[in-house]
């Protein structure tokens, strides 16, 4: 894209934002639903660290995990989201979500090189539980569709953050930083696990 065409973007954005047409089927609280969906994975620390860990682990594993993960993870998570929307119960969701941070953080810290199928299976199970937690809150949102868009985008961006952090593994010092980060995620996951076990006991 040329610099000249980029210069026209602010003008186009202003033209769209300034227009106030007859909006016959304006949907209710799209902004609120979108913001709630975007913030949900970011405000839950257990979700946040697990999603970042998925991205880092994918980067550590290399191809094909690094590009299969961001493509398939949202789909599997959405499947869990549908289970949550339909109120299909899953066993101990809070415990498994905390466990996901512990396991994924541990995998990053130990540079665990599992076969792709095994890594994908582990991530898929955790994705269903994370999606379930998001989906359970979806119907209560002001605009469920906007909420769904928000949380899928936020989750994808968290993976991207993880993948970007994972690129540090190209350098020996970066590898140690990434492993240290994995250890911190695992410790936090352990804390959340103890907390959730204590809460459910």
């Amino acid at each position: 894209m040329s610099l000249r065409s980029l210069r026209t973007l602010p003008l186009a954005a202003a033209a769209i934002l300034l227009s106030q047409p007859a909006l016959a089927h304006e949907q209710a609280d799209v902004g609120g639903g979108l913001a709630a969906g975007l913030l949900h994975p970011l405000t839950g620390a257990d979700h946040l660290i697990a999603m970042v860990a998925v991205g880092i682990w994918g980067a550590q594993l290399g191809a094909p995990a690094i590009w299969v993960l961001p493509i398939t993870f949202p789909l599997v998570m959405a499947f869990g989201g549908v289970l949550g929307i339909l109120h299909v119960p899953l066993p101990m969701p809070e415990v498994v979500i905390a466990l996901s941070a512990l396991v994924l953080g541990g995998a990053v810290a130990l540079r665990l090189k599992l076969p792709f199928a095994a890594a994908a299976a582990i991530v898929a199970v955790f994705a269903i539980f994370h999606g379930h937690a998001h989906g359970a809150e979806l119907p209560g949102s002001a605009n469920p569709l906007a909420y769904g868009i928000g949380f899928v985008v936020a989750t994808g961006l968290l993976h991207l953050c993880g993948i970007v952090i994972g690129t540090l593994t190209r350098w020996p010092a970066g590898e140690r930083i990434v492993q240290g980060l994995g250890a911190i995620i695992a410790l936090l996951g352990g804390y959340f696990l103890l907390h959730s076990l204590g809460a459910s006991a």
Binding site: A63, W67, P70, I71, T72, F73, P74, L75, M77, A78, F79, G81, V82, I85, L86, G135, L138, P139, P144, L145, G148, I149, V152, V153, G156
Partner: peptide, 29 residues
């Protein structure tokens, strides 16, 4: 394997995921 192609395919995954949840909502309501 080109990252631009992967980014587009990841967007496809996002759209399918949103569609899947739309379906869940449609069936739930």
């Amino acid at each position: 394997k080109d990252w631009r192609g992967i980014a587009l395919r990841a967007l496809g995954g996002w759209i399918a995921a949103i569609g899947l949840m739309m379906a869940g909502l449609a069936f739930a309501s």
